[in-house]
Amino acid sequence: MIQISPSILSADFSRLGDEVKEICELGADYIHVDVMDGHFVPNISFGAGVMESLNEISSVPYDVHLMIEDPDKYLDTFVTDKTEFITVHQEACVHLDRTIEHIKSLGNGVIKAGVSLNPATPVDLLSCIIDKVDLVLIMSVNPGFGGQKFIPQSIDKVRELSRIREEKNLKFLIEVDGGVNGDNAHLLKEAGADILVAGSYIFKSGDRKKAIESIK
């Protein structure tokens, strides 16, 4: 079954703890933590302190997505007992191989390294490091804001990644973030996706349980 990682960027920040507790109880597999710096993307979200405040509330691991410039400066601050993935953007890393190694060295080597690709970034730019990553995140919207419309070409990128994974006998997971809903989730799953990120579709729904189940 596909795994789901609800993005707390779309949650009600005035009651964030309750929001996280609820989606965990409703079947979330991860908590997707979107970190934006106002430079790499045109928006500012929150930092490590907000994530850490949820440590005793979340019953599932963190899936941390750093949409920030020069992420190496901040990687250590996002390591907690709940952190499973830390994902950086290919477009933001000058020395991506070094950044991946840095992530995998954190938390006594238990943190998994992810790399994200913007909609206009081709999959083949990961060819030299694809065997080192634990996760590849395909952005199916242009990063920076929640609630955007899904870009259909993202399905082809997922399919291409899935083919590479099979041909090279690799184990990395494929995640998709942006505009995911009950209408396109099955297409992404069929293309080879393992984890789907959904924010507005879940948190703005009148029936969150039904929204999660429609994706799964």
Rank of each mutant, 00 (worst) to 15 (best):
I8K: 06
I8E: 03
S10A: 15
A11N: 08
F13M: 15
S14P: 09
E19V: 14
E19M: 13
V20L: 12
V20D: 09
V20S: 04
K21S: 15
K21F: 07
I23F: 06
D29M: 08
D29E: 04
Y30W: 07
Y30R: 09
I31R: 05
D34W: 02
D34M: 02
D34F: 08
H39I: 06
F40N: 03
V41T: 04
V41R: 00
V41C: 07
P42Y: 09
N43E: 07
N43C: 12
F46W: 04
F46P: 02
G47Y: 09
G47M: 10
A48D: 09
G49L: 12
G49I: 03
M51E: 07
M51Y: 00
E52S: 13
N55M: 09
N55R: 03
E56G: 15
I57Y: 08
S59M: 06
S59L: 05
Y62V: 08
V64Y: 01
H65E: 01
L66K: 11
M67H: 07
I68G: 06
E69D: 12
D70P: 08
P71M: 01
K73T: 05
L75C: 04
V79P: 09
T80E: 05
T83V: 11
F85V: 02
I86V: 15
H89G: 14
H89W: 12
Q90S: 14
A92Q: 05
C93H: 04
V94W: 00
V94T: 15
V94Y: 10
H95L: 15
D97Y: 10
T99V: 14
H102M: 15
K104D: 05
S105E: 04
L106N: 02
L106H: 03
G109A: 11
V110P: 01
V110L: 06
K112I: 08
S116L: 01
L117W: 03
L117A: 09
L117T: 04
P119C: 13
A120G: 12
T121W: 00
V123I: 15
V123D: 03
C128Q: 13
I130E: 05
I130N: 02
D131W: 11
K132Q: 07
D134I: 06
L137D: 07
M139V: 08
V141S: 07
V141M: 11
P143Y: 04
P143R: 11
G144H: 01
G144P: 10
G146Q: 14
G147T: 10
K149P: 08
F150L: 14
I151G: 00
Q153G: 05
S154A: 13
S154E: 00
S154R: 00
K157Q: 02
R159F: 05
R159P: 00
L161N: 02
R163S: 15
E166T: 14
E167C: 13
N169K: 15
L170N: 11
L173P: 04
G178V: 13
G179Y: 02
N181L: 10
N181M: 10
D183Y: 05
A185E: 06
A185D: 07
L187I: 00
L188R: 08
K189D: 09
E190R: 13
E190K: 14
D194M: 02
A198P: 05
A198E: 11
G199M: 12
F203N: 05
F203M: 03
G206R: 00
G206D: 09
D207S: 14
D207F: 10
D207K: 06
R208E: 01
E213Y: 02
E213S: 12
S214Q: 08
